[in-house]
Amino acid sequence: MVPEGVEIKQQTLGIKEGLVAGIPVVIGYFPVAMAFGLLSRSVDISLVDSCLFSLVVFAGASQFMALDLIKAGIAAGDIVLATFLLNLRHLMMSASLAVRLKEIKRGWLLFIAFGITDESFSVASLKSGKLSVRFLLALQGIAYVAWAGGTFVGYLIGTALPAAVQSSLGIGLYAMFTAILVPEIKKSYSVLFLAAFSGSIYVFIDYFRLLPSGWSLIVAIVAASAAGLLFVKDEGREDRI
């Protein structure tokens, strides 16, 4: 039995927290999705197909990659394979999230799984408090709406925003990753080790082109996390390292 005081300490996150946590994701997604919409139009993809990409695939990096490959005349099967490689990292993120989602009904997992992106995973997995279905669906829901809506708007009216605004909003997504990570580094230098080690492996693989590009992220994540088992002292905290 868990003493009552411990239960109270971990606030259960609700819809409101989910929507607020989603704001930086929305700010980043909308303009990037607009760029996707516009770009897909220039590759001669119909409005319906362009929106379908965002509505049913919902994977930013993969969608942009697909446009590149379509433009280069690569066959659909090969594009799917490349997408698979690029998305293997979500295998790790999904597994990591699973550790924190013990009490959630299985049916909800079908929806939560669909919304696991780099951004929503990063926001959710380092959010303190108890993750709930409401929180996750609210966070992923507005991110999804921004992504799909941005695609539609971008296809129809182009980027509309001045190029400098558009690009700086896109940079906001990397700023968001940073702003999620840094406070964790402040709490524990083990985090710095894990992140820096993973980043270094990525740079090494990418710079020397050791692996096809889809592999770099997944290898960096797996290798650095495994190194963490060896080098990071287990601090025995339940939800964090």
């Binding site: 990591s96 964790e184 994540i221």
Partner: peptide, 17 residues
């Protein structure tokens, strides 16, 4: 533990990328 390290290693690699 391995899975709990994933958020940090993923962020490190994503930022660098």
């Amino acid at each position: 533990r391995f899975f709990l390290y994933i958020p940090y290693t993923a962020l490190g690699a994503l930022i660098i990328r």
